[in-house]
């Protein structure tokens, strides 16, 4: 892209992708992706299914390996393996489509797991902080239950609290509302909106166009493994530059 800047002048981006390529067998799922996410920025990635947007999100935490290129967190290149990889992952939170709470742990223990195991905090301190976080996302009354006893919306809010407990530099959201019943989408988006307004750096893969319009600082439109368009939300939704983006927006409006 035309965004090659001298990094010594500008502040270091929280997440940076340089010439990232990835294949699934024959399928070229990410084609020469270059991207910078600045501190406090909310980037929303949209695109048809199979466009590679979810894969893009997962590579930023290296849950998916890449074939070539590099990914930097806070200016440090994510290595392929080992403790360094774990350390950098801890700096970036991830919220999954299917919540992925630890089924054998209570809600509270789900949130304290990271701080205790990875950040080596004391149990007491971790618990106190976890309760505050649970209160912030509005599920503190469920702290002693296990995930299966909670609604999807509640589980996803716990998952957000679990990410926040690590004090991440950024949080990646991989279609966080796609597995939710319609009446629960609002409560999760509300928490996310609040996070954005508090200045959290966020990368959000979603189909929620209203959320994108309201909250995003930048919208990326992906198709066929490439970022086809990078725009402000106002521009993108009113006057998309590419034909494919227009087609995509039409198809979801007709829906």
């Amino acid at each position: 892209m035309e965004k090659d800047q001298n990094s010594s002048v500008k502040p270091v981006p929280v997440i940076e992708l340089r010439h990232v390529d990835k294949h699934f067998g024959q399928l070229h799922v990410l084609k020469d992706i270059n991207l910078q996410v600045k501190k406090g920025e909310v980037v929303v990635v949209i695109g048809p299914s199979g466009s590679g947007k979810s894969t893009l999100c997962r590579t930023m935490n290296r849950l998916e390996p890449i074939d070539s290129g590099e990914i930097l967190i806070d200016g440090e290149v994510i290595p392929e393996e080992g403790r360094e990889l774990a350390r950098l992952r801890a700096k970036v939170g991830m919220v999954f489509q299917s919540f992925n709470l630890f089924a054998h742990k209570t809600i509270l223990d789900n949130v304290t797991m990271g701080p205790v195991e990875v950040l080596r905090k004391s149990k007491k301190e971790a618990r106190q902080e976890a309760m505050e976080l649970l209160k912030r996302v509005g599920v503190d009354s469920q702290a002693s239950k296990v995930p299966a006893q909670l609604s999807g919306g509640q589980q996803q809010r716990v998952a957000i609290a679990r990410s926040l407990a690590m004090h991440p530099k950024a949080i990646l959201f991989d279609e966080p509302t796609s597995a939710l019943d319609p009446e629960m989408i609002g409560e999760v988006l509300e928490v996310m909106t609040r996070l954005a307004s508090e200045g959290m750096t966020m990368v959000v893969v979603t189909h929620e166009m209203n959320f994108a319009r309201r909250v995003a600082h930048r919208v990326l439109f992906m198709d066929g493994g490439s970022i086809l368009e990078e725009n402000t939300p106002e521009e993108f939704f009113t006057n998309p530059r590419t034909q494919r983006a227009r087609d995509f927006l039409n198809s979801i409006q007709n829906h």
Binding site: F24, L27, G52, K53, S54, T55, E81, G82
Partner: peptide
């Protein structure tokens, strides 16, 4: 959207890097 159905047995390990290899 990884396109692969994985069981936990396969997911235990990440794709190995050079050191792991």
């Amino acid at each position: 959207m990884s396109g692969k159905v994985m069981t936990a047995k396969d997911a235990l390990y990440e794709p190995p890097g050079p050191r792991t290899k």
